[in-house]
Simulated assay, not measured.
Amino acid sequence: MNKADALNLIEKLAEPAALTLPSDACLGHHAEDGTYAHLVLSGLAMRCQYTQDGERQVCRVYRPGDLIGLEMLAVSTPSLMIETIAPSVIKRIAIKRLRIAQQNDPRMQSAVMSLLASEVMDGQQLKISFGTGSAMRRICRFLLWAANKDEVALPNREKLGSIIATTTETASRMIADLKRQGVISKNPVFGCRVQINREKLCERAGNLCEQSAA
């Protein structure tokens, strides 16, 4: 079963009302953390943890069409936090309901296995895209990956730095450089969004461009 068919099947189990969340919102809290999986309809989210000294460590970023938290079918205690990094619309899928459907419907079991395999492969690809090469290449790959119709909801500089494993100062300087070079430009209506020049970004992203671009 391909990813699109698997997502369509699992989305039928979602709660009818979607959640509309601002940037920097947490998905679930305390006892609710392992109660739901979350399907991203629009926006961006990340999975991370914070060290004792407050350092943010990002392990995964999600865009529309990604399902967050499917591993809660097998584990009882979530180990990482989920935060939005742009205004997002998300549907919740009760883990209990998903577990029952998985047990009773072979197609649902196939969908779950397909999405778990996709999560492993997607996570590996993002680790390569956002974790290798120069900081400029990494930030260009992120912008390409996160773009929807050549527009990106830009995370704040602290979270952007965490995503591509660089300092906030470096992330801020690179965004300013890309604007100055005409690679990205501010949306005249929504200040947190930028328009991308895909061709120029690909030139700076290196040979992973095609694998990273949305």
Rank of each mutant, 00 (worst) to 15 (best):
I68Y: 03
M121Q: 12
Q103N: 11
T132Y: 02
D122F: 01
E55V: 11
E83D: 15
A117Q: 11
I82L: 00
V120M: 00
S114E: 12
I93Y: 08
S129T: 01
E119N: 07
G65Y: 06
S88Q: 03
R92F: 12
E71M: 14
I95D: 00
I85W: 05
I90C: 03
E71D: 13
I90F: 02
Q103E: 12
E55Q: 14
G123L: 04
R92H: 06
S118D: 14
Q57L: 15
E83M: 15
P64C: 09
D66N: 13
T77L: 15
S129M: 08
Q102S: 15
I128E: 00
A111Q: 02
V61N: 04
P64K: 03
I90N: 04
G123Y: 02
I85P: 03
Q57A: 14
R56L: 01
R99C: 11
R92P: 06
Q125E: 10
I68F: 05
Q125H: 07
L98Q: 14
A74K: 12
V61P: 10
A117R: 05
A117G: 09
K127Y: 11
I93F: 08
R97S: 12
S110H: 03
V112A: 04
S79Y: 09
F130Q: 01
A101L: 01
L67H: 12
M72R: 12
K96G: 05
Q103S: 06
K127I: 07
M108V: 15
V112L: 01
A86W: 05
E119C: 06
L80W: 15
R92D: 02
I128F: 00
S79P: 01
L80S: 13
S129F: 05
P106Q: 01
L70H: 06
L115T: 05
R56Y: 00
R60Q: 12
D66P: 06
A74Q: 14
Q57I: 15
I128Q: 01
M81C: 14
L126N: 03
E83P: 06
Q125K: 10
A111P: 02
P106F: 04
R99I: 13
D122A: 04
T132E: 08
A74S: 14
Q109M: 13
E55C: 01
D66K: 05
R97C: 05
L98P: 10
S129G: 03
V61K: 06
E83H: 14
R60T: 03
R60A: 05
L73Q: 07
T84N: 02
